[in-house]
């Protein structure tokens, strides 16, 4: 899982995609997850880090993360994975 290049998230949670010209807003958790993805973390590592910081169970976190990653894919912000 890789964020497309040149995508940066400002500290306000504003994400600008220079590839498409689209802008997005993220909440704090969303911001953290995008940062972790861009650092090259795997899904299970992301879950570890988020759990470290926030009060949340693994199963519901997994569900939210799946949904969030689907959104990122939908918005074309992730590199296509090669299987």
């Amino acid at each position: 899982m890789k964020i497309k290049k040149n995508i940066a998230v400002s500290e306000n949670g504003f994400l600008f995609d220079p590839n498409s010209g689209e802008s997005y807003s993220l909440n704090k958790t969303g911001q953290l997850i995008v940062k972790l993805i861009s650092e090259g973390k795997t899904e299970s590592e992301i879950i570890e880090v988020v759990k470290e910081k926030y009060e949340v169970e693994t199963t519901s976190l997994q569900r939210y993360l799946d949904d969030f990653i689907m959104m990122l894919q939908q918005m074309n912000l992730l590199e296509k994975e090669e299987d």
């Binding site: 997005y24 969303g30 995008v34 910081k53």
Partner: peptide, 16 residues
């Protein structure tokens, strides 16, 4: 102490 969790959200900003 751990922070209160909010599910991650990303929203498209529609120009205009």
């Amino acid at each position: 102490e751990k922070l209160k969790f909010e599910r991650p959200v990303i929203n498209h900003i529609n120009a205009g």
